[in-house]
Nucleic acid binder design. Structure first.
Lengths: 115, 115
DNA sequence: AACTATACCTAAATTACTTATGCATAAAAA
DNA sequence: TTTTTATGCATAAGTAATTTAGGTATAGTT
């Protein structure tokens, strides 16, 4: 588990990115996916998740539909055109930021991450 | 300029890392260095900087000495042994986190960053 | 004379979260 | 059979790292 300060601020970008990989996703699914894909190192709690999703909808980045799958009601989120564009921007900003941070804390990085 | 959310949470790590590169640094110097090294993309404001430095001192990660250089009083910060160890830990956590984020938002990264 | 740079500091406000709680259904374990 | 775990949604109070805005002082620049 990473310290909260580090994860704070990246969650919206993560959600936007995961939504861009699929046609639609629901909240619980997003929560599970983040946990699985990060091997439990990043936990997207419900208290963070749902307010972010609601804000994305309010800002016009996602639209929603309810679907009932085997007696379970799910609220699916889908990126709008504006949302897809926003997701790309946020991703590019994050990648740029991480490169800047790399050069700042590790001026002479190893090439171990390269094939 | 990156969005505040993104930078928020990384500043303490950045400061610890910059301090680990030199024997001693003072506040204003840290502020200038972050701005220069990131080409203005990360601004370490005084309202963030000084509280962080004071907390680092309180927590025993740095010690301080005052020096007067040409009528200007500077407060120099130096990492303690504990501070050096902490700086390494924070750096490793940040690098680990960034790798996790990379794989999360960019599952098939380009190799453009490799030589 | 006013502005910019150097150099330190603090305090109120913001905000993205954490923690805690609530509701409902279904499957698994005790 | 009763309780825990998993699924699925949601909100609300509290926390803490900042931002924003202010203060003090000296020195060089316009």
């Amino acid at each position: 588990m990473y310290s909260n300060e580090l994860v704070r601020g990246t969650l919206k970008t993560v959600i936007l990115q995961l939504l861009s990989f699929k046609d639609k996703m629901y909240g619980y699914e997003l929560s599970k996916e983040v946990k699985e894909k990060t091997e439990g190192k990043i936990i997207l709690t419900e208290g963070a998740l749902y307010p972010i999703l609601h804000k994305l909808e309010k800002d016009g980045y996602v639209t929603t539909i309810f679907e009932t799958v085997g007696n379970r009601k799910r609220k699916y989120y889908m990126l709008t055109g504006k949302g897809k564009s926003h997701a790309k921007d946020r991703k590019n900003e994050l990648l740029d930021f991480m490169q800047t941070m790399q050069s700042l804390v590790d001026p002479k990085p190893s090439l171990s991450s390269c094939i």
